[in-house]
Design a protein around this nucleic acid. Structure first.
Lengths: 150, 150
DNA sequence: CCGTTTTCCTGAACGAGTCAAGACAATGGC
DNA sequence: GCCATTGTCTTGACTCGTTCAGGAAAACGG
């Protein structure tokens, strides 16, 4: 299983000065396979390969990978933390208010930083995060009565 | 105390079909006086006027006011919920990664919705929320060693 | 292969926010 | 003004995502 793991993950970890371990390879794989997965989903997917990995290990690994820039943590208001493998490309997200579905959206302008604050109050701005709030096609459909909204 | 409360709040509550109560007036006052206050800060300020108000009441009131559109709830990733009185003007926020300070920023483009997703994946987008991440002047100052960062 | 350093496991704890049920108070008609 | 109705507040327990702590285990460089 782990032997057939694409070697990229090993190289990515080494490139970030992180030790190559089973839990880390499994978490990287989980995040690459399932974009916007929350921590619990990552734990499930990791345990499909390595049943004994503790939830704490997954939390630790996700943090290490986030700090290293190998994964990106996103957390729309009212949601638990979610993780994705697309990093460094300055993309944004559409979030469904009903079901919580998240999709990627390319940068509205194109060049990072894609937006400049009209008055930054003296802040040193590093990043502009954009979240588009709305309804996904399924939840917006009038033929469907949503059962997920509060 | 409550008798000298500006009448606006009463009118605002009535206009939103909400009953006028002490806790609600106090919460409205707290949010208007202290922009971007978190729930705990609101509780403190409310209890300065009405010492017996329960934390649950403040949670309930903040939710009712948010649903009614009288206050706006914001929650940058990794932060607790915060509330502000500026509503309906499509403004955004700069957030300091070190100390958590939040300042208002006017819409980068000007017209709500101020941004249009390049590809909305069929979503019905209602609102574009922008958060500028960076450092506030105090935390960015090289003459100061930050003590607040993790 | 060994020692050092990092990572992982076990288990407990934290804290923002929520749930539930009953007491209480604001509103509108009398 | 007073009462009934309806919505709000109090009390207290609880949920759950996440973090803390300490020791066991594993990865890496030499």
């Amino acid at each position: 299983m782990l032997e057939r793991m694409p070697p990229d993950f090993r190289a990515m970890l080494r490139g970030a000065s992180l030790r190559v371990t089973g839990p880390r390879l499994a978490v990287l794989d989980a995040v690459h396979e399932h974009a916007h997965a929350d921590t619990d989903t990552v734990i499930q997917r990791v345990r499909a390969d390595l049943p004994t990995v503790s939830h704490q290990a997954v939390y630790d690994v996700l943090r290490a990978l986030t700090v290293a820039g190998l994964v990106r943590r996103i957390q729309p208001a009212g949601s638990v933390a979610r993780y994705e493998a697309r990093v460094g490309d300055n993309h944004h997200h559409v979030v469904c208010r009903d079901c919580g579905r998240i999709d990627d959206v390319d940068c509205a302008v194109g060049q990072p930083p894609c937006l400049t604050a009209s008055d930054d109050h003296g802040f040193t701005v590093e990043e502009a995060e954009v979240i588009y709030w709305g309804r996904c096609p399924d939840c917006a459909s009038p033929s469907r009565v949503s059962t997920d909204q509060p």
